[in-house]
Design a protein around this nucleic acid. Sequence first.
DNA 1: AAAAACTGTCGAAGCGCTTCGACAACCTAT
DNA 2: ATAGGTTGTCGAAGCGCTTCGACAGTTTTT
Lengths: 337, 337
Amino acid sequence: MVTLAEVAQHAGVSASTVSYVLSGKRSISATTRTRVEQSIRELGYHPNAGARALASSRSNIIALMIPLRTDMYVPVMMEIAIAVATTARTHGYDVLLLTGEEGPDAVRRVTGSGLADAMILMDVQLDDERLPLLRDTDQPSVLIGLPADTTGLTCVDLDFRATGALCVEHLAMLGHRDIAVIGEAPAVYERHTGFAERTLDGLRTRSQELGMRLLHRPCEGGYDAMAVTLARILDERPSTTGFVVQNESAVEPLLALLRQQGRAVPEDVSVVGICPDQVATQASVRLTSVSIPAQEMGRHAVEQLVAKLDDRGSDEVVLIAPELTVRASTGPAPSHS
Amino acid sequence: MVTLAEVAQHAGVSASTVSYVLSGKRSISATTRTRVEQSIRELGYHPNAGARALASSRSNIIALMIPLRTDMYVPVMMEIAIAVATTARTHGYDVLLLTGEEGPDAVRRVTGSGLADAMILMDVQLDDERLPLLRDTDQPSVLIGLPADTTGLTCVDLDFRATGALCVEHLAMLGHRDIAVIGEAPAVYERHTGFAERTLDGLRTRSQELGMRLLHRPCEGGYDAMAVTLARILDERPSTTGFVVQNESAVEPLLALLRQQGRAVPEDVSVVGICPDQVATQASVRLTSVSIPAQEMGRHAVEQLVAKLDDRGSDEVVLIAPELTVRASTGPAPSHS
DNA sequence: AAAAACTGTCGAAGCGCTTCGACAACCTAT
DNA sequence: ATAGGTTGTCGAAGCGCTTCGACAGTTTTT
């Protein structure tokens, strides 16, 4: 293993000089710099992470807490995680993967041990038990998702309230009056996951304003659960012509079931998805949808965090504006004839 | 921040004693131990990760390299990652998330800097450029997936060759003679990803042995691509009655298309999936499938790695035996009437 | 009863790096 | 020319921990 000292000796300078070449924290003459860089290359030197962390009390690691459960949005989580990892690297950080399993203890462990310089938390509950800890520590953190009380916190999320409103508006514009919402699994609402409740709020508020009728039904993903849910909806309100689907694993089952029942999409009923573009474009009917900007969220979160670590940036809530892409699954409401 | 020294002072012992209490590497009297543990709790002490890493040259971190691309098996990747993270924690390790983006450089960086004690690599190509580096370093590593040459490497994977054979056998047993394989996206084969090629090999070999005819067609996921692929297959060999699907995002499209064409599953055609159980059970027809044991693979990989780190365990290739679960998508081949 | 072997604890060295103050050597301005 | 700045480099301290050898005290062996 090659050490700083060996590089210094090889280049004929002191260790501190090499360190300054590496960090750029003091000016170094061009000649010395190139000589040192040369030695580094020749010896194949890599700074030791532990030593660095100890001396500088900076680990250059960002912790990312992802949910353990896989009852929703797995590809989105994955995409966020990947975006976080790659963005972090461009800023010189690595990413430590924590699962929600340890819960608040993980926060304590990481902040206490200096394992990471900062944290990103996903799958935030409205009243998340990790939040007090985050407020107490001076370690920067960013939430992906929105808790009930955001004071003293930095958050990044899609504006799900606006997303709900947007879906309703689109259907309203096409003349639909009776709308059903296929929501996330019941467990998601029981956990009071922010995005689900906020979407619902946006849907409800806007539909009320526009004089539409809204039926919300949570739904486990999959074909069977969707069949039951759809039957209930059509039974309860047969005049339903518009669907908003927030559970991506219900999208394809819904389309299949509608087809099976002879309801044509978009001639008879319209369907709007809230899902990643990939799901929308790969569905059997290309889905009009509001996309979940997973990459953008991940990137944003890291950039907020890096700003904080550099003593720039402040606590703020960034809500990404939703964008609705019209595809083949929505059309004018059938006339009442 | 609380340090070891402060704990030692508080407990009235020397720093080394506290260290030994923590590590258990030397015997400590019960009285001293409890006193120290008491102090640790009272002061809320957390050992500093950097200092520990520096002094012991052990970071207690395992690096996990996941593929950057998301053209296949995202949920599987995610499940593996989560299994790795949770299993690692039970052994006292944390997980560093690396994306394939940096390629071989990431391996150099991690081994060189002592950031991690060991690595797990996913998405292994048959001739992966990271392999020489792994063989050269004395840092333990485990591959999830199988390269062409496994000498000096430890690998964990589903036995995809046996998986292919198993699918064919199942269909053969039911009397099917003409089989089509819906494979992964062409790019996956172009990259020479081991599992795809090995599955194909298993399928081909066994079907030849059993006197069956096999048609293999790569397929991007999604409805449109599947439609094209299916049309081609049925055009080329209309007598096809059995399908093996290896691309999970082609499963639902295939089922929908068959239904649409009036081919009943399983009465007219049988479909076998190679996919996570979740996909199989959530499909519109409950799919007979060989499941991808993602959790088991992740757990196995970590345990192999921990064994190596403890100087137990050796280089070996662990192939997990495939299990086929019969569900509602396969049945006897229609008689030729 | 003396020698040998444990047990439990301590002190000190050192892991490889960052960073601060010091200080020559060189520029400006007056 | 001289005080005052800059610039580039070095030495040394120290980050918080692990670990090795030492050693006093106790137990076991012969």
